[in-house]
Design a protein around this nucleic acid. Structure first.
Lengths: 209, 209
DNA sequence: GCCTGTGAAGACGTTCACAGCA
DNA sequence: TGCTGTGAACGTCTTCACAGGC
């Protein structure tokens, strides 16, 4: 059923399901119903079954889903059965936090390059041993290290320029932490992580009810 | 028109509009059409007009919107015409980056308290001068400092416990950076910022097209 | 002529309700 | 009986298309 259009929200939820399933593996739970999994993830049980139905049949009627198998299958769907090479641009507080963040490496995301425009930072090593390079070396190094995803943790006014460099090297996925809209051509996926938007949301709901 | 249900997506977009409008203010643009603003934000022009229509009439037919006025109005809608007091729990790499992040303070978000369970960190000062306190002082300090939003940047296994403490003190808005689902009662708003989910999204689209 | 404001239409995503199977 | 898989119903959000007004 891969040929019909899959909601973006479904993909996001699959990611949540893997989390819950990983928790269940730790608790040595072997079988889980859509009802139980739904409670853990805060969604509707039918939603889970629908989401999975886009990709095939993974459960056993009258029983539920085998935790390990389902986890394996979803990870495969998401493309998490491989390692992904990331490059970071902007090695400030946030950038350092990202490189050091263990959840990334745990899931198979690996920073293989780091860039910063600040001359003071170039040549310095990060905790992981990664050396900081100047932005004009992005093309060479990204090719050499086979970077597949770019992470932008630089100030907003540089974000588009950095994105362009990534796009030029053929990077097809960009994770943007800068609070600005990035324009990318068809075929390049941009995901935004935006703290202030989330805070603005809180502000609104706290103000208006 | 405040009485009819407003899509969550609308609120998120309002936040994007403020960004674009702030940019236009800097460029000394005084009037903007929904078409132009839509291009800047990567949305449909009708969408912008619909979003604004939930809250009133802000434009001039045949002309467009006055940039400064619209910015002011949207900020008011979002509740950004005041300062918001935040508390941080979990002063690791990410937590430090958040406190130091200038976009927060620029928008009127102010960290007024910081907590960490690590005895080594307690009593230490952050760059902003903020002193780190132990979690058992959350109730007292949050009340004293009139904390309105809680920011969780601690490991996932502590996230729910921390959230509960915030909820107990009467904090009604929580920004959660831990990759786990937080359960909160009606009236408490939780916003999640989840890097790995975003990366998983990229992984999927890079794998499946 | 131009651009906003908005009802109507359309697209999309979620939930229901039940058939199908262990 | 219990729980999955799924068409159909429902609700929500987005886009269209044009009336309204500068």
């Amino acid at each position: 059923m891969k040929f019909l259009k899959i909601p973006a929200a479904t993909i996001t939820r699959l990611s949540l399901y893997t989390r819950a399933l990983e928790g269940l593996v730790v608790e040595q739970v072997t079988v889980v119903s859509s009802k139980r999994l739904a409670e853990l993830c805060g969604v509707n049980p039918a939603q889970i079954r629908k989401d999975l139905a886009y990709f095939g049949q993974f459960g056993v009627r009258g029983v539920g889903y085998y935790v390990k198998e389902l986890l394996f299958d979803i990870k495969k769907i998401l493309g998490l059965n491989k390692e992904w090479n990331l490059a970071l641009v902007g090695v400030g507080n946030l950038g350092c936090a990202l490189v050091a963040h263990e959840n990334f490496s745990k899931q198979g995301y690996r920073f293989v390059a780091a860039f910063d425009a600040d001359p003071m930072k170039i040549g310095r090593k990060l905790v992981t041993g990664l050396v900081i390079h100047p932005p004009n070396e992005m093309a060479n190094i990204c090719k050499e290290k086979q970077v597949e995803m770019g992470v932008i943790a630089a100030p907003p006014n540089f974000a588009q320029e950095i994105a362009n460099r990534f796009i030029d090297v053929g990077v097809k996925g960009i994770l943007n932490f800068a609070p600005t809209q990035i324009h990318a051509p068809e075929g390049v996926r941009v995901e935004n992580v935006d703290f202030t938007v989330k805070l603005d949301n809180l502000a609104y709901y706290l103000t208006a009810g």
